[in-house]
Nucleic acid binder design. Structure first.
Lengths: 161, 161
DNA sequence: CAAATGATTCGTTCAACGTCAACGACTTGC
DNA sequence: GCAAGTCGTTGACGTTGAACGAATCATTTG
């Protein structure tokens, strides 16, 4: 029963390891980002806005899975610094379309540079190629956002063929 | 100058993506672990104790980079549930050696099983092989712990030879 | 014996986050 | 055009996690 040979490996999950790495990064990144006047969630929001392009505010809230009211404050911070722009949607003037500004993109680049030292410290056991692999895996995982908040992932990740 | 050809890619860092994935996992994992009476940090501690074997309490605190006083409460929870054992170190009776119990290992397995559904939801864009790659990368990153809290990583990740 | 160390407990402080309630701007359905 | 619903915004409130300091006890070390 417990031995399905090769197929059945111990179900070790990445969640705990991810939590572990995240803790180590977070402790350091707060300090690294402080000189820029940013927090981790600011960088997260800027990253999403850079990678996805202009997004409606509630889409952004759904993607980063943050409460709408908190997104307001988050965007207030970013907009006060001129890092993002809020415009009204042309199709529905109730909505806001959020867009990263050139200044925001520059700031994000600075933040990523600052985070480089953090990653060098935390991910020191990984060589350059492994870090690129990690980045692309995370990129792929985060880029597949459910269209609705409750939608389960129906895409078959190509194991069939 | 700004173009070093192939070598110089935009310095996109994994930190923000890691933050992103972590948020999505955390929101769901708390709910998934609640029936077991566990929190994320409990699973983290159990994972470290399983992978490293019996560890001194301050080593554990250093590894998960958590304040010593908070580790006390964390271990109190785990010990109250019979998931870990605190014994006095034979060489220095001030120290505690923490060890995961059989019950703790079983509980950790249950927790990992419960987290499987969470990962299926969050990491749905990754196929099985990619998830294994992610796991091994995180494993490798977290297994290389600095011996002291301030020690920088001096190991060359095998690019040299 | 005196000093230092590890674990523990307690209390304080702070940031992040969720929730609820209310409001103005706007859209939609009737 | 009016009523109802939606989106963004603001504010207040409570919860949680976690860092920090101080005090205590047991133990080791000088």
């Amino acid at each position: 029963m417990p031995s399905l040979r090769v197929v059945n490996q111990p179900p070790q999950r990445s969640a705990a390891l991810l939590d572990h790495v995240w803790r180590r990064i977070r402790l350091r990144s707060e300090g690294a980002l402080a000189p820029l006047g940013l927090r981790s969630r600011h960088v997260l929001a800027l990253t999403v806005l850079r990678d996805r392009g202009p997004s409606e505010q509630q889409d952004l809230a759904r993607i980063i899975e943050m409460d709408g009211t908190n997104v307001v404050g988050l965007l207030n911070d970013l907009e006060a610094g001129g890092l993002v722009e809020r415009r009204r949607s042309p199709t529905d003037r109730r909505r806001h379309v959020v867009q990263i500004t050139r200044k925001g993109a520059n700031m994000l680049a600075k933040a990523e540079f600052a985070l480089g030292a953090v990653e060098d410290e935390v991910l020191c056991a990984l060589d350059r190629k492994q870090r690129e692999t990690l980045y692309s895996l995370l990129q792929q995982a985060t880029s597949a956002h459910p269209r609705t908040a409750t939608e389960t992932c129906t895409e078959e990740p190509s194991p069939g063929s």
